[in-house]
Write a protein that binds this DNA or RNA. Sequence first.
DNA 1: ATTAGCACTCACGATAATCGAGTGCTAACA
DNA 2: TGTTAGCACTCGATTATCGTGAGTGCTAAT
Lengths: 344, 344
Amino acid sequence: MELNARKKKILEVIIRDYISTAEPVGSRTLSKRCNLGISPATIRNEMADLEDLGFLVQPHTSSGRIPTQQAYRYYVDEIMEVKKLEKIIRTDIHRGFLNYTSEMGNTMDHTAKVLSQLTNYTAVVLAPRVTNFNCKHIQIVSLIKNRVLMIVVTQEGMAKNIEITLGQQVDSMLALKLTNVLNSFLKNTFLRDMSSEFIDQIQELTAEETHLIHEILPHLKKALLEDASEIHSMGLTNLFNYPEFSDIEKIKRLVNIVQEKQVLSDILTTKDGNRVIHIKIGSENDNESLKDFSIITSTYELDGETMGAFGVIGPTRMNYDNVSSVLNYIRNELNLHISNLLMK
Amino acid sequence: MELNARKKKILEVIIRDYISTAEPVGSRTLSKRCNLGISPATIRNEMADLEDLGFLVQPHTSSGRIPTQQAYRYYVDEIMEVKKLEKIIRTDIHRGFLNYTSEMGNTMDHTAKVLSQLTNYTAVVLAPRVTNFNCKHIQIVSLIKNRVLMIVVTQEGMAKNIEITLGQQVDSMLALKLTNVLNSFLKNTFLRDMSSEFIDQIQELTAEETHLIHEILPHLKKALLEDASEIHSMGLTNLFNYPEFSDIEKIKRLVNIVQEKQVLSDILTTKDGNRVIHIKIGSENDNESLKDFSIITSTYELDGETMGAFGVIGPTRMNYDNVSSVLNYIRNELNLHISNLLMK
DNA sequence: ATTAGCACTCACGATAATCGAGTGCTAACA
DNA sequence: TGTTAGCACTCGATTATCGTGAGTGCTAAT
């Protein structure tokens, strides 16, 4: 769908205006604001056209118009130009990250905080999954009764604890033996493609030990398969202030979504196309509860491989320009930061 | 303050009525509901007295009365009798817990869920702190650059991971050595009273190793000191439905509180007196944001020692009877369950 | 001490009146 | 032919008015 230059301009101004005021925009106010020397009457004609084309709607017959989802989509695809963040803000963000050079969890919290503050929307960050990494160490610790704790550590310092109830009691000596066996075979393999075939190659194990290893490994696999990213969210109440969310039912849907880790994780990790910034507007979201929200997400990488995702949830009249800029910059910053944190 | 039997009865009925309807209660409706053979006029006189005594207020001159905080306090202290939960519900809860015999995290999640479902309010559960337990195993894993991960495991299967950046690189051999040293001295000591004096007793360590241990231990202490309980909350949106929370500002305060782990943890762990069930009504709460809410909390124990806390946040017109009953039973159930989970 | 009776209060809901920012349409204009 | 001034019209939002009813306090009778 192509619009002529004037329609495009008018649509842009309407969207910009509506994004910042949440009020339907009429022809008169518009002609004042965008001083293109066009009269209200002309604008009215153009607006009527834009309405026919599906870009605008009137909440009621005699009010101004508001943009449709289609309009936002058009705006995002064809009109908006994502600018670089201002230098001052960039250095500000950068400095902020420097305070979190040691721990992953803190970095993620900080990211969420920065995101929500810079955008005034709700921010969500997915920490890297342990399965993305190389196994550095596995430890079996014997617990009371017939339970053991298996700890998997990556080179980068991420750890996953797995509680296992076994068919028999395991004392410290046996635990040590198991630890050694597991380490000798799993060390330096990628956690996501651990295989259990190696066991059959082991000769010097007793039947008991072999049996235990066979009992343990499925738990490891299962745990790694189910391994969910840690989720850090911030600014949930930011959205409470926007007039379109004075309806408590909408707020409720939002809160429910943000509380549901699985849902949130799914939302953050659905890509569209090859873009760096993913934008989902209103009902473009797979999740029914999100039809009144827009979500912009991005990912961060290490060695070209996706480590995690982060994004912002806001109203459909979201400030797409700004949020895109912010996400772009945070993405770079996070890539840099993560590689400092985890590499060499 | 003592009230005569009739006043007490009237106050009770008013409170019960208001708790279930959230509507100011008037003399006429009241005289129908509590068939004590007293006329509305008499009730009016009594109500006027109760108002003078500070137990009731009128939202406006010609409306019914609603209970004050003082009334709820009186009700909780002097009127209400906490009943045992119905048998059916008890066995229902008990059966539910049986599905979570293996993992602590799941148990806590389940508890929060059950609490919020049984009460229709917001439930919060604090998992046991690792520092409550005995150290079963400490492991140092060398990471990239000059970082190591220290893992502390308790007999019960709780683990705490501590990332440490050291002054020098530590290879796997050295990490193993450190692990052995730490284990030999810290194993089976209580995590909360770990001391670092033992190091000076060690003879066979190289200068480098001693130095590293000295570098590591403060991190351990700090981490254990800061060790926060994991928090599991559920049913945050339950409160959204109550008419007194149609005001979005109140909702906002609630959400902010529940998102702030530190605040929540403080709230759950303030005791009053020696009671098993702690009740804070409205502005009795230390936290300003909670002045429109009531909170009922309790704790669970192992070997007579407090392991964690749990509770319910609701409106000041909370159903104190029911919530108290539920908390009482959950407390028992949790004690039982935890001891099964953690003890031999 | 209790209660029936009565005049009074006041939030709430419905109805009506006003206002104003917005519209579409028509005719005049460049 | 595209643009604009003019005008009548629409309709949500705001305000005003009024009746209703559940509530009150007070007084006098029981």
